[in-house]
């Protein structure tokens, strides 16, 4: 098992390199650079823009820019954000934390809803329930995230139960730690719910399909023949088998959150990595974008690793030595 972990961590380095390279190419692909907007400002002379371009190294070919970035990155310097006139590392840390909180809460909520509901629906074997769930899943999947997010905004504005976007109240600085925590939860509720709404159907449907398949496996049939209670069969036996694809989904769900949360973050003013990354891409703030994507890559690799470890734990056969 440790071998897997170590091998994966070693494999992370080339992945990160490839992601950084990809990001540079990506920005290269889209025309314009950070100073394009400024260069159109009639009160700014082309000479000034040229001087700034030179200062920021934007006049260099992309591979040279990448080389410069890389030589700094290996020394632990993630670069300089043109958009905020400061080091990337300091700016991104806050956003990383905020996205992680949102993503974790969203995932947690989604799983907390999907797992029991999935098991219960298979156990109940009711046609009505089944239809209701399929309809519900369709609705959740079919409505775009921004409509859910807008709905959440309207709910907040209409009822006053939740804050309208944002992550902390203006008074936050005066709060005690406990109050700050409650304030965070209060702000977190809606965005996390929206994230969960879009994630939960995936888990729910996958789980239900997995359970349905597992329930006809021979060993389960055998157990049933021995008189094991249905509920016990489901939870102790079938769930074990059905959890496998769920874990894989969970692994990449963690990684996919970056693009998944972008709209939620934007509409509900949750300053996270997703909106930061899109903003950086649109503004061509290269170093910041690369840092965001690197974070996403790490998150994804970690999610996948975690999923694989859990997979191995859930299904001992996978741990067996590879076929040679």
């Amino acid at each position: 098992m440790w071998r897997i972990v170590i091998r994966r961590l070693l494999a992370l380095a080339p992945l990160l390199l490839a992601v950084a390279l990809g990001a540079f190419l990506l920005v290269r692909l889209a025309p314009g650079d950070f100073l394009s907007e400024l260069s159109l400002n009639p009160q700014v002379s082309p000479e000034t823009v040229a001087a700034m371009r030179e200062r920021y190294g934007l006049d260099l070919p992309w591979y040279e820019q990448f080389g410069r970035w890389l030589s700094r990155a290996v020394r632990g310097d993630l670069g300089y954000s043109l958009a905020c006139h400061c080091a990337v590392a300091g700016q991104i840390a806050v956003h990383v934390f905020q996205t992680t909180v949102l993503a974790a809460a969203g995932l947690g909520l989604a799983l907390a809803a999907a797992l029991p509901l999935g098991v219960w629906s298979v156990w109940k074997r009711s046609r009505m329930l089944d239809r209701a769930i399929t309809a519900g899943v369709s609705i959740l999947l079919a409505w775009p995230t921004f409509l859910w997010a807008l709905g959440a905004l309207l709910l907040a504005a209409g009822t006053g139960w939740f804050p309208i976007g944002g992550i902390s109240s203006i008074e936050n600085e005066k709060y005690s730690t406990a109050e700050k925590f409650i304030d965070l939860l209060h702000h977190l509720a809606l965005p996390a719910a929206v994230v969960a709404l879009k994630q939960a159907p995936h888990y729910l449907q996958t789980l239900r399909a997995g359970l349905a398949e597992a329930m006809v496996e021979d060993h389960i049939r055998a157990a049933r023949a021995r008189g094991v209670a249905e509920s016990r069969l489901l939870v102790r036996h079938a769930l074990r088998n059905a959890i496998n694809p769920l874990l894989t989904m969970f692994g990449q769900g963690v990684g996919a959150l970056l693009s998944g949360t972008f709209i939620v973050e934007t509409v509900l003013s949750w300053p996270g990595i997703g909106s930061l990354a899109v903003g950086s891409l649109l503004a061509r703030d290269l170093d910041m974008l690369v840092a965001c994507l690197l974070y996403a890559a790490i998150l994804l690799a970690m999610g996948n690793l975690l999923a694989d470890l859990m997979l191995a734990a859930a299904d001992p056969r996978i741990r067996r030595p590879q076929r040679g």
Binding site: G165, I170, S269, G279
Partner: peptide
Amino acid sequence: LVFVIDRDRNTQLLKFQRGE
């Protein structure tokens, strides 16, 4: 004088409507 950052126009509108 407080500037809050709301990237989305809808958020800005609803906050103003609510008096936030």
